[in-house]
Amino acid sequence: MPKAQSHLHLTGAMRPSTLDELAARHGVAVPPLTGLTGGPHEWAVFQGRYDAARAAIRTAEDVARVVREAAEDDAADGCGWLELQVDPTSYAPVLGGLEAAVEAVLTAAAAAPLPMGVVVASSWARSGEHATTLARLAARYAGDGVVGFGLSNDERLGRIEDFAPAFRVAGDAGLLRTPHGGFFTGPAHVRACVEVLGATRVGHGTAAATDPVVLELLAGRGVALEICPTSYPPFGVHALDEIPVRTLLAAGVRVALGSDDPLLFAVGLGGQYALCRDVLGLTDAELAALARGSITSSAAPAGLRQAMLAGVETWLA
């Protein structure tokens, strides 16, 4: 079934075999990454593993390989458009600065075997001023491969109002605005991401399912939630069979499935749809609604979007 990938982080997109090879080449010690199982884990456990893996990406050639392989993996799962999220702050020290880091990802994306865009992201753990710097950087490359501006990491680490200036810059540049929210926090956080930051999509946002007012807000404004099923059980946020996908769909909220960090959670994009079918019991019609949501909430070019939507209807028929 044709679909778009809306929530995938650069380091988390790496194949385990590629991580092993790059770590050996650069002499980087990386602990075994076999997926976050058991738990629930504290966020620091995930962040420590993620940071260790990120340290293995040292050159523009490494970036190009990770991007190419991520595109290959998603294409094999029926993905027709990929949006890859990257915080250039993390790669700037080894790639030659923030601008060089963004350009390395854009160059890799342009050569990838799948149409794609780049979402530049800051972190809830950094200052609003730093986020504004990155939003201005993202705005400079709007139209040249950057399609969005995001805010990743644990949303409990920052104050929403501190990031409003950054999201105004992104909005003025016509970029998608995709802050993470409503993962550890409640529905009020999702609402504020929409009302204060002007979010066009919210990363995760599953807490919205508990508040009819927030659901109505999301549905009324056409704000999509980027739901990544395998990301929640390791932190005790939701059991796999309790993820509120059907509640969101029933409320008229657009849902875009993503794989988030398959390096750590061990399930790719196609596997996320399979879990929705096999564990949540979604019907083919509901799976098609997820695919449509991923496509219509994406920055895919209009012609590609229409072709993918037509492909969904063919699959459903």
Rank of each mutant, 00 (worst) to 15 (best):
M1F: 03
H7F: 03
L8F: 04
H9T: 09
G12Q: 06
M14Y: 02
S17M: 05
S17V: 12
L19R: 12
E21K: 12
R25S: 09
H26Y: 00
G27E: 06
V28P: 13
P32D: 11
L33T: 13
T37C: 03
Q47K: 13
Q47D: 14
D51W: 01
A53Q: 08
A53K: 06
A55E: 11
A56Q: 00
R58Q: 15
A60K: 12
E61P: 01
A64Y: 00
V66S: 08
V67M: 07
A70E: 05
A70F: 02
A70R: 04
A71L: 04
G80F: 02
L82D: 02
D87E: 05
D87K: 00
P88T: 14
P88M: 08
L95K: 04
E99K: 04
A101C: 06
T107C: 01
A108R: 02
P113V: 04
L114G: 05
P115S: 11
G117W: 08
V118S: 11
V120Q: 10
S122P: 01
A125T: 15
S127Q: 09
H130E: 15
T133K: 10
T133Q: 14
T133F: 00
R136Q: 13
Y141I: 09
A142S: 13
G143W: 12
G145H: 11
V147R: 12
V147F: 10
L151H: 08
N153C: 13
D154L: 10
D154E: 12
E155M: 08
G158E: 06
E161R: 11
E161T: 13
D162A: 15
F163T: 12
P165N: 14
A166S: 09
A170C: 07
D172P: 02
L175C: 10
R177V: 07
F183D: 15
A188H: 09
A188R: 14
R191Q: 12
E195P: 05
G198R: 10
A199D: 13
R201N: 11
V202C: 10
G203P: 07
G203H: 05
G205H: 05
G205R: 02
T206F: 01
A207G: 08
A208V: 07
A209S: 15
A209P: 12
T210L: 05
V213S: 14
V213D: 15
V214R: 07
V214H: 04
V214I: 10
L217H: 09
L217R: 07
R221K: 13
E226S: 03
E226N: 09
Y232C: 06
Y232H: 11
P234Q: 11
P234E: 11
V237I: 15
E242N: 09
I243E: 06
I243S: 06
R246A: 15
V253R: 07
V255T: 10
G258R: 13
G258N: 11
D261F: 05
A266Y: 00
G268S: 08
G270L: 08
Q272L: 01
A274Y: 00
A274D: 15
T283I: 03
D284A: 15
E286P: 03
E286V: 05
E286D: 13
A288W: 02
A289N: 07
A291M: 10
S294K: 01
A299W: 03
A299E: 14
A299K: 03
A302F: 00
W315H: 09
L316F: 04
A317C: 02
